[in-house]
Amino acid sequence: MGETVVIKGTKSGITLVLNPDADYETLKKDVAAKFSDLTAFFGEAYKAISFKGHKLSDEQKMELINIIHENCKLSVLCIVEDDPEEEETFRQALENKLMEQENSSNTGQFYKGNLRSGQVLDVETSIIVIGDIKPGAKVISKGNVIVLGSLQGNVYAGAAGNPNAFVVALDMHPVQIRIADAIARSPDNPEKNIKKRRKNATHETKIAFLDKGNIYIEPLDKNVMPDIHL
């Protein structure tokens, strides 16, 4: 038979692993004993606490924390929850908040420098990259992406689902563009592509935008202006 109460310490907190089979009264007694034994070890520290193993009501948790306070000099600052359901609720709330943000505002950031394979630039706002995005590099933005340079990598605009997001690049040769839920990839025939690129050595600024579920790439001129929604 293992111990009913096991204390695990982390950098900023402690985890109480409680035996799920033990009854609550035994647990209370054992927690009291454990912590009074460890008074010297913990000293007057401030810790966060989380409970594992045994299902506890909020009242029971408070009661256990009071027991800890009575039996040693430790101060429990907060309870950290380990509940996947609750975590999911938090995550969704956070995401909704972010959606609101990007729909209501047109804020942006700048990034200077080239992005190379394996590098990822992940931003909450629109982003203006002064430099190239090389193959294998990735830019993810909840807003728009403007590349003042060559776009040869992956870019994901409107990452939280904004279908009005767009991508502009001085030299538009991405491996993949994603806007909201749509994905477009580069053509499969690389040889012809390279030849074409050499031919069009004078780079033309292009814009990629989403229209009825499809991503279109067009030269950035007055014809596409009606398609841009800020």
């Binding site: 394996g118 580069s186 499969d188 690389p190």
Partner: peptide, 15 residues
């Protein structure tokens, strides 16, 4: 250091 995708010519399909 992925490479099999480019050797297969499938790098533009990766999601």
């Amino acid at each position: 250091l992925r490479n099999l995708d480019v050797v297969m010519g499938l790098e533009n399909r990766i999601v």
